[in-house]
């Protein structure tokens, strides 16, 4: 059902290695030629999935899906509507429990290492997690409170960075759809989590915003983090890995 494309774009930064059910996958990448990595050692994958399988409403979304997300990569999950992109991302984020297979964070199973994983992973879903009755500042403060409490100056700066300067104290229900998404996206500017899982991140965002987000994704990868993203927007970043779902 699902298959995985291996795409190599040379030396700029290591691509996510996507292997279809590789039997030797449990060993540290024996199939990878070191020359591809320009002499550096193969880094330990941040996130590794082996034999993921998910069924929803008696329909098999994917099966035997294996991949690893290396530090320094952007990976795009592709597929038509209903192919399970969001479900895969929710599984990776730990929001969906109805799956089989192995999922590990830095070599340890996520279920055993949940707290550490959650501290290092940021998930932004379809629903942005913004309360309509609160202002952008209050929303951002509440979203960051359990992860990395920041003073208001830093939060205001992040909001200004997403183009919301002047709207900090306006209740979110008075903002446009794009502005509401931008409140959630302000987290990209202040997040210190290495792994970002972003579902439909470009929805309702204008062209300038899209460009700014692309820069942020690449920057996170360059800093040694990793980004997993779904989008219907035409995203093609240098060195981007792909996971394709639902294709025959």
């Amino acid at each position: 059902m699902a298959f995985v494309i291996m795409r190599d774009v040379g030396i700029k930064c290591p691509v996510s290695i996507l292997v279809p059910d590789w039997p030797s996958f449990m060993h540290p990448m024996p199939y990878r030629r070191p020359s591809l990595l320009n002499g550096t050692q193969m880094p330990e994958p941040l996130l590794q999935a082996v034999g993921l399988e998910c069924e929803r409403d008696e329909r098999l979304l994917f099966q035997n899906l294996s991949f690893s997300i290396l530090p320094g990569t952007v990976t795009r999950v592709e597929g038509p509507n209903g192919s399970g992109k969001t479900t895969l991302l929710r599984i990776l984020a730990g929001l969906n429990d109805a799956w089989a297979g192995d999922l590990s964070w830095c070599g340890t199973s996520i279920s055993q290492n949940r707290e550490s994983y959650l501290r290092n992973m940021m998930y932004l879903g379809h629903r942005p997690g913004i309360k309509h009755l609160l202002t952008p500042l209050e929303n951002l403060r509440a979203l960051m409170a359990g992860r990395r409490p920041l003073d208001d100056d830093a939060l205001l700066q992040a909001l200004a960075g997403t183009g919301l300067a002047g709207f900090e104290h306006v209740p979110c229900r008075n903002l446009s759809a794009g502005q509401q998404r931008r409140v959630a996206l302000a987290r990209l500017l202040i997040a210190d989590e290495p792994l970002w899982i972003l579902d439909e991140v470009f929805t309702a965002i204008d062209a300038d915003g899209v460009e700014a987000i692309e820069t942020l994704l690449l920057q996170r990868a360059r800093e040694g983090g990793a980004v997993i993203v779904t989008t219907h927007h035409d995203l093609d970043l240098p060195g981007m890995g792909r996971i394709t779902l639902g294709a025959a």
Binding site: P14, N38, P71, G72, R119, N120, A221
Partner: peptide
């Protein structure tokens, strides 16, 4: 161009602080 390793987040917010925020 090799990625520098991004530091993993080890600090954690106190449970009580998070509860108060919620």
């Amino acid at each position: 161009n090799a990625p520098i390793a991004l530091k993993k987040v080890d600090s954690s917010v106190g449970v009580f602080q998070a509860m108060v925020s919620v």
